[in-house]
Design a protein around this nucleic acid. Structure first.
Lengths: 158, 158
DNA sequence: ATGAACGCGTTGAGTTCTCAACTATTCCGA
DNA sequence: TCGGAATAGTTGAGAACTCAACGCGTTCAT
């Protein structure tokens, strides 16, 4: 698996450990946050994320494609998600006059209430599970690392 | 949402940015790796992970519960996953004589071949999408941060 | 002015995941 | 040694996601 004759740039032991530790964070942390949010509020994190982004938009309204971009979701995923959020009464779709292919998603009052109810426990979980584990220096490093990776992933594809 | 009278330890602006950047890494990076592996090898990352852990075990064999622990998977998730891997002929289940509730999962030769075929492109993707974005110092920091979070999450629950 | 290419959003089928319930076995204290 | 609790693993139903295909509106080059 670490044969060097095949042109693959395999990971060395250190890199391997780093990668696996990072993978472990990803699984352990997000499984836990997902579970907390589901148990306490009946929402997957991606749906919560959608409510958050809408709550920050002017008039609590965003074009579907802008919402997909800001929630880092595929169009399809967002469509399915908004369908459920609409059925629950937390989001409403509105037609777009300027571009009649498009549509708006708008957070309803009930949706805003739902978000307000869900937020405290979720934020508390993020804090206790992640932030409380790290020193201020580590938090700062995490910020820079994350920004670097995001920039790298969003660069024009080579 | 940032009302301080309710006892919730809200995130300040800096923390908010850190959290969102980290969340973005999680979504962008793992969506991409997942997609690459699915496209090139027809495997979800969690299934790939299972094959990896088995390949590292003595006799390519592990108890289901050990496998679940080492792949950071729930029992149920693992059961479903192994069912598919077995149907593909990549894993075989074996009864456990010492504890007749238990069972072993063993990687087959075909499973090993599958893993060998899938690995190079996946490792290459991990390298180009993550490692190439970071300086050696950042990689080192990422390792320490990840270890700290994992230790924090695995500590005896308070 | 027209038609091809593109963009927006949705849909349906199939896959993977979660949760809760279940069987079967083992452990352990009285 | 008996019986309840704990452990191993599986199952099925339902939720969420992916992919590919689609319908319809817009854009743009000719």
């Amino acid at each position: 698996m670490t044969d060097v004759t095949d042109g693959t740039r395999w990971l060395d032991d250190d890199e391997q450990c780093t990668w696996r530790a990072f993978l472990a964070v990803q699984r352990l942390l997000f499984d836990r946050l997902e579970r907390q949010l589901q148990r306490d509020s009946g929402l997957p994190m991606t749906y919560y994320e959608i409510l958050v982004r809408l709550s920050e938009a002017p008039d609590h309204t965003l074009r579907m494609s802008q919402l997909a971009d800001s929630a880092l979701s595929s169009r399809s995923r967002l469509s399915h998600a908004v369908a459920r959020l609409e059925a629950e009464g937390w989001v409403r779709r509105r037609a777009c006059a300027e571009d009649r292919r498009g549509s708006f998603a708008q957070l309803t009052e009930e949706g805003m209430a739902k978000l307000r109810a869900a937020a405290p426990e979720h934020v508390e979980a993020v804090r206790t599970e992640l932030f409380d584990a790290l020193t201020p220096a580590q938090l700062h490093a995490l910020r820079e690392i994350s920004d670097a990776v995001v920039a790298h992933l969003c660069r024009p594809r080579p």
